[in-house]
Amino acid sequence: MADNFNFELVSPERLLVSGSVSEVVIPATEGEMTVMAHHAPTMTTIKPGVVTVKFADGRKDRYVVFGGFADIVPTGCTLLAESAVPADEVKSDEITRRIEAARAELAHAKSDDQKFGIETYLAELTTLQGIVVPV
């Protein structure tokens, strides 16, 4: 049995999860990563995606996050999300709204760098929409 560690999922509006978990899957910018106890101290930014939390008692929860970053230390992990919602409460129009906002931003983008950034974000959002919204 794997060791447990403390995990906290915080959005600016509230604290969503705080408790002992055995593993957490985080959609980091450089690729998904699974965090378990005694992980090397890492700090990473997060792309829009799904966070899967496996609690100490075996229960599994999924949350949709829109960007943010994670602070991982051997004894715990804190995920600061710009916005986070439980996966089954996600409304598809919320994602659609963000996609539209990003598209509008893309139209105004000036430099190539900016365009690239927004396009990546847009691609991530579209993938997320594919995952979350049941067809």
Binding site: T42, M43, T44, T45, F69
Partner: peptide
């Protein structure tokens, strides 16, 4: 502690400060 930064400390900081 000595942290690993992904992508790198500067990029994270750049993302973090506006937030």
């Amino acid at each position: 502690a000595i942290y690993d930064y992904e992508p790198d400390a500067g990029a994270i900081l750049g993302d973090l400060i506006p937030r």
